[in-house]
Design a protein around this nucleic acid. Structure first.
Ligand SMILES: [Mn+2]
Ligand SMILES: [Mn+2]
Ligand SMILES: [Mn+2]
Ligand SMILES: [Mn+2]
Lengths: 218, 218
DNA sequence: ATTAATATTTAGTCTTATCTAAAAATATTT
DNA sequence: AAATATTTTTAGATAAGACTAAATATTAAT
């Protein structure tokens, strides 16, 4: 049985291992968890002893198959709770993450099974992220950053890369919800910002950074 | 901000302080929490420093007004989650307690406000226990142990004193749900056991101990 | 009023999870 | 290939929460 802290570390390692290199560095973990490298080294040892990660000192860590399974269980719970909060309790998509960070650690297989049923077996969370099934299988919709589209191309918003409140509230403001249709009208050569039209209604300028954090189907 | 452990101690102290004496003993706390008296003394000091209890050594503890408020917040959460589990996730009344023990520690005022709304502002949990409102106010239905009824008297089951799985499963078996009408047909002088009729249908014998743990309105 | 029994506290240890400061290993520059 | 910079690990502390064993205080019994 993993503790809250262990689950959080494992989840972070899993997420980091998706972005590029297989071996995750001590510093990267410390950064995302807002903790110190020394603490990470300690925890890494414990996780290694529990064989949810493979670790050689000074070489970073790689998540094991067992570890991946555990991480996906936590992620599944996190995302199901996020759906619950939005669909049933009328939370907005920028409010759910902090609460889900707590709820994801509740231990009860029956609870999650029933919650999944209650929600109608959702496949994606409020930020467009796929919800792993009981076996850790993930449905992977192809998606591309809005910033990658050519001028005059369009796409449907299917996910966001950044789930911070500030970003999501901004998206709310311009009306770029999940499912919105976005057409790229123009790309400003100077700074890579885009002029886009949302749902054929509203035309706005967005920065390159924003465009990189909106994911669409092309 | 109270930790999980602190919340659990406080809740226990609150519950114990309802049953009789105002001053709760170290041993009583240790017993109900399945921990050792020495650990209780340590925690008591911390809680006293946070002034949620009043403590003089060797004299037991008394919960403070602040402490009562905090305890009632946790109890409110516990009971609301129990309602959620039964009403929405189809848990049976004997399965909810262990899960609610975890859920009661989730910190999010908005979550509880919305959960309450979502459930339609329930006043009682699946075991008939009253749910404190946001201000800690409790609706106190008058109720009496079934064992106190005279022969030929009857009452409606409104709560159970013991919420253990074993007891609740037994009640399920004989059909003594909340809301069931129970008539006392006979009291056996030998051991105080009762012959009762449930909902005018089923007649069974129950032990004195069982009768003492079923609460009815008279 | 002593003595015996029980309850409570203290002293000292352990585990988990964190930290700072210093040492060691690895990576990057010159 | 050295020198420098960065990353990672070790050493030593701290705080929360729990435990055992021993010491005190309180309560009950003689
Ligand atoms: Mn999230
Ligand atoms: Mn999400
Ligand atoms: Mn309960
Ligand atoms: Mn209950």
């Amino acid at each position: 049985m993993l503790s809250f802290a262990e689950e959080n570390y494992l989840k972070t390692i899993y997420h980091l291992s998706l972005g590029g290199e297989k071996n995750v560095s001590t510093n990267a973990i410390a950064d995302t968890l807002n903790t110190k490298p020394a603490s990470v080294t300690d925890m890494i040892r414990k996780l290694s002893k529990k064989s949810v990660i493979n670790y050689k000192r000074y070489r970073g860590v790689e998540i094991s198959e067992d570890g991946k399974k555990e991480a996906l269980k936590v992620i599944r719970k996190h995302r199901l709770w996020e759906v619950f909060l939005v669909e049933k309790l009328k939370f907005s998509w920028d409010e759910v993450h902090v609460v889900a960070e707590q709820l994801e650690h509740i231990k009860s297989p029956l609870l999650i099974k029933r919650l999944d049923e209650f929600l109608g077996f959702p496949k994606f969370d409020p930020h467009g992220d796929p919800i792993p099934d009981e076996n850790g299988e993930i449905l992977n919709k192809p998606k591309v950053a809005l910033s990658k589209l050519e001028v005059n191309e369009q796409g449907i918003v299917v996910a966001v890369k950044d789930s911070s409140s500030l970003f999501l509230q901004y998206l709310d403001k311009i009306g770029a919800y999940l499912g919105a249709k976005i057409k790229v009208n123009d790309r400003i050569a100077f700074d890579g910002s885009l002029e886009i039209t949302i749902d054929n209604k509203k035309t706005v300028f967005i920065s390159k950074e924003v465009a990189e954090n909106i994911l669409v189907t092309d």
